[in-house]
């Protein structure tokens, strides 16, 4: 997972390199709230996440680009007994749910050039999900590449000519995949950070 993060960092550095006045690059801290199947597995809010966005402004108010993020949910379950049919297993469990949304996205900026610039966006792409259930010395790993959609709302608060505070909420929805993780994987992320680039 750390490798994926490093790759994401490397990619963001590349995007930093090609920055110009007609693009917006965002780096945000991402808090995530599990929904659906993810919530059944790990009920706790995730305070471990990061997201990177790069959008090229094809119109003053339309940005086309990519969005990457990494969110990890974690929960330590107390000593419990899990029974399936005629077998029971007792012990402590550690549950990890990693999600890496990778989307091509379009943002529509409502008030470009103004102090507060709200925007809405939609991403289409994939979410890589990896779920680990650790018990004793073993881990059960389940993976999925879900086709996904990512509606976004948020705003940019301009701090200086090229730097804005970025606040956004995203619904990351990965549709059912026919792989190890059968169910749809979804969560809501709240992103706080900075956007670089002139509107």
């Amino acid at each position: 997972m750390k490798k994926i993060l490093l790759a994401a960092c490397a990619l963001s550095l590349c995007t930093v390199g090609i920055l110009n006045a007609q693009s917006l690059t965002s780096v945000t801290y991402s808090i995530a709230f599990p929904t659906g199947d993810v919530s059944d597995f790990v009920g706790k809010t995730s305070f471990r996440g990061i997201s990177f966005d790069y959008h090229r402004l094809v119109q003053p108010n339309i940005g086309v680009g990519v969005s990457f993020a990494w969110n990890v949910f974690y929960q330590e379950k107390g000593y419990d007994t899990y029974t399936v049919d005629n077998a029971s297993l007792s012990g402590k469990q550690w549950r990890y749910s990693n999600h890496v949304p990778m989307f091509a996205s379009v943002n529509y900026y409502l008030k470009p050039g103004e102090q507060i610039n709200p925007f809405v966006g939609m991403g289409i792409g994939t979410i890589y999900s990896r779920r680990n259930t650790d018990m004793n010395l073993y881990t059960i790993r389940q993976e999925a590449w879900n086709f996904g959609l990512q509606p976004t709302i948020g705003f940019l608060y301009r701090g200086s000519d090229e730097t804005s505070v970025h606040v956004s909420a995203r619904y990351n929805y990965g549709f059912k995949a026919g792989s190890e993780l059968q169910e749809a994987q979804s969560y809501i992320s709240l992103n706080l950070g900075f956007t670089f680039g002139r509107m």
Binding site: I50, E76, A87, L89, S90, G91, K92, W94, M135, N136
Partner: peptide
């Protein structure tokens, strides 16, 4: 973020498991 990656078991008896089947 990497520094915050969640940890796992802390004590050796955290790893004890009991399996039964009939």
């Amino acid at each position: 973020v990497m520094g915050c990656y969640p940890s796992g078991p802390e004590y050796i008896d955290d790893l004890d498991v009991v399996y039964t089947k009939f």
